[in-house]
């Protein structure tokens, strides 16, 4: 089951957030004001430091996934510093190929090539065509609802 998706840029600005089957919702708390997103990025940022330090080959030390008792966080960081973060339950399997497809097949085509997207200033992505394509793709996955 897919819970939610974050896209961050290199500086930690959350460019995009969507949620689907999210049982516990910290965002319903109106006082949140992006706090959750900052915590998420802060964690990934620190984790990267640790992962890089512990790796025998610092050049290839990417975080793939993070698993807890109740959910799995799937993570893809691109060379351009974008981070795609997809949270699911623990039965979804390896979603790295999914995140890659999301990046090359959907993000590049519908966001990077869109004149309204500005890769430098980190303004949020508000593009209906991207929304619907993303929705269609994720809903087509076997792990979306089950």
């Amino acid at each position: 089951m897919i819970y939610n998706l974050y896209i961050f840029n290199r500086k930690g600005k959350c460019l995009y957030y969507r949620e689907w089957n999210r049982p516990q919702n910290t965002l319903e708390n109106a006082a949140d004001d992006g706090e959750e997103q900052r915590l998420m990025f802060g964690m990934l940022y620190s984790l990267k430091e640790v992962v890089t330090k512990m790796s025998t080959d610092p050049a290839s030390a990417g975080l793939h996934a993070l698993k807890t008792d109740s959910y799995t966080l799937h993570h893809l960081e691109t060379g351009s510093g974008l981070r795609f973060v997809l949270n699911t339950d623990n039965n979804a399997g390896d979603l790295r190929p999914t995140l890659r497809q999301l990046y090359s097949g959907i993000f590049v085509e519908y966001v990077a090539k869109h004149p309204q997207f500005n890769p430098v200033d980190g303004s949020p992505i508000r593009l209906p065509a991207f929304d619907s394509r993303l929705e269609e793709y994720l809903r087509s996955l076997a792990c979306f609802k089950s």
Binding site: A59, S60, T78, G79, S80, L82, R100, Y103, S104, F107, V108, A112, K113, F117, P119
Partner: peptide, 15 residues
């Protein structure tokens, strides 16, 4: 912008 298309599609796997 082009960098993302490059990274996604060029097939240069390692940094």
């Amino acid at each position: 912008r082009l960098i993302d298309e490059f990274l996604a599609k060029a097939g240069v796997s390692t940094p």
